[in-house]
Amino acid sequence: MKLLIGGYTKKKATGIYELPLKKADGLEMQIGPAKEVIKVGGPTYFVQDDKFIFTINNAGDKGGISSFELVNGQYTQKDSYLTPGSSPAYIGINRNKKLLYTANYHTAVLAVFSYDQDGSLTFLDSVTHTADTLGPCPEQADGPHPHFFDETPQGNLVSCDLGNDCVDFYSFNNNKLKHLAKYQNEPGFGTRHIVFSPDGGYFYVVGELSSKINLVAIDETNWHFKNIATYSTIPDDFSDHNGSAAIKISRDGKFIYTSNRGHDTITVFAVNADHTLQLRQRISTFGEFPRDFNWDEGEKYVVATNQNTDNATLYTRDAENGCLTPIQKDIFVPEGTRVLFSE
């Protein structure tokens, strides 16, 4: 097993790094030294399909996505789709349909691409968010900021817009995007990322600007929404700046995890039988500004990256109570914002 970690390339980093993950001397898993395997600008988010990596690419005055193929132990660039201006903030994937979904925070564009067996990219369609419901925070004053674009449990598409404080739903048929519905978060929520319950009847959306998780019941057939509850990801007495970032739900639907940039923690919630949340743990990431974290296929090991302090932390996860236990700290990896476990 190995890790792939990428992020900004503004200081020390130059691309995507690979770190080995293996048991050492009969002990728990340990992460080895990072080595660069893909040289690319600003791979702040990327996804994998077998031998292919599809990554955000900040190429100077252009931005977009690029594909890389693993051949004889080396990654080779296969294709790129770049346009003038900023690169996207998020890339999602459907491996069966060979589709990629990107959200561009700066240009407000959501786009869909296809890829073939050679890693070649084809642009299919896009929509641009407008400033319909901009929030009151300074980060929202300059327009819409979609930060997430991926699939729903029923195979529709969903975006999270930090500027507009909303969750938008789309269909994608005959290579065309069509807007279906909108759920509006409270003003200043800063809608960022979303996860769905295993039964598809509820979603948990995290607000970057509010440091909150909003639990919502959803009828994805009739597009009815019910706002159930909202939970803080940080302590009530924490007054410094915080920006919540990634959110994950365990495969069994019993636990929710979110990262806090500023409080520098991962918050763990247990999911009750009625889908409401109960705070279980807040644990340090042992660094500053943890944007992303992820787990292995078995959800036993969790890795969080700290963007500002160039380090990562390895935890074990207890499947019964959801809690994390750190087993390795101060793993050097520069400017990390995206974590992906890879076999």
Rank of each mutant, 00 (worst) to 15 (best):
L162R: 14
G322N: 11
I283S: 00
T230V: 08
K22N: 13
T55K: 03
E139M: 07
N72A: 14
L27Y: 05
S259H: 05
D330K: 07
Q77H: 05
A312L: 06
P144H: 08
L157D: 04
S86Y: 04
P334F: 02
N242G: 10
N174L: 02
V206Y: 02
K23S: 12
T313I: 10
G287P: 02
G64T: 08
D264A: 09
F54G: 09
G135R: 01
Y105P: 03
L279T: 09
N96R: 13
P84A: 09
T276L: 05
N227E: 11
Y8D: 11
H263I: 00
P290N: 14
Y257P: 04
D25S: 11
T267A: 13
K11Y: 12
A59L: 03
G60V: 06
S87N: 09
P146M: 14
M29L: 14
L121R: 04
A181C: 08
T337G: 02
F255D: 15
L100I: 10
A217H: 11
D168L: 09
N321G: 07
N96C: 02
Q328N: 05
S67P: 04
D292E: 13
N294Y: 04
T305F: 03
G188C: 02
T230G: 06
N242S: 09
P153I: 15
I16T: 12
L279H: 01
E297F: 05
G336H: 05
N175W: 02
Q30C: 03
E18Q: 14
L3S: 12
D330M: 02
T230K: 06
T133F: 07
S284A: 09
D61G: 00
C323F: 02
C323I: 10
D330Q: 15
Q184E: 10
V109Q: 06
G322Y: 04
E320K: 10
P136I: 11
T316N: 06
G41M: 07
E69C: 10
G6I: 08
F148T: 01
V71R: 11
